[in-house]
């Protein structure tokens, strides 16, 4: 007795499932890679661009802790300039375009930041 048919059917099912990322684009279509769009009011950010790209979430959380837990709102950037720690007042003065700036990467990489659980999302033109 042989059970080759059943075993090969199982193998085929596994291969179809395992190769999902390969056949999925053919079925589901593809979306172009997002590039965050920067609208600047200031000349430079509070930290260098490369550093912000890598660890802006840490800075934002440290600002949140400092403001919410210590009531401390002033931050000195690397060049000694005083900045008010405020997401809506400081960050979003240069980056009001949440959909084009924040969401472009966050959606592509399935990152769900908790900012908007307390802050009010900016109203953008549709």
């Amino acid at each position: 007795m042989y059970d080759g048919g059943k075993i090969l059917a199982g193998l085929a099912a596994f291969l179809a499932l395992a190769l999902f990322p390969f056949w999925e684009p053919a079925v589901g279509g593809r979306v172009a890679r997002p590039e965050p769009k920067i609208v600047t009011a200031e000349k430079r950010c509070v930290r260098p661009k490369a550093e912000m790209r890598q660890s802006h979430m840490e800075l934002l959380v440290s600002w949140r802790d400092s403001v919410v837990r210590q009531g401390q709102r002033s931050y000195r950037d690397p060049e000694g300039k005083a900045v008010t720690m405020s997401l809506e007042g400081t960050c979003m003065r240069c980056h009001p375009n949440k959909a084009e700036f924040c969401d472009s990467c966050h959606t592509a990489l399935v990152v769900a930041p908790t900012c908007w659980e307390c802050h009010i999302e900016p109203k953008e033109r549709a």
Partner: peptide, 18 residues
């Protein structure tokens, strides 16, 4: 890790991450 391979990312990945 499907979030790197699929675009758009299937919905269950966000659920799983959550």
């Amino acid at each position: 890790h499907l979030r790197f391979f699929a675009e758009p990312v299937p919905g269950f990945v966000a659920l799983l991450q959550g």
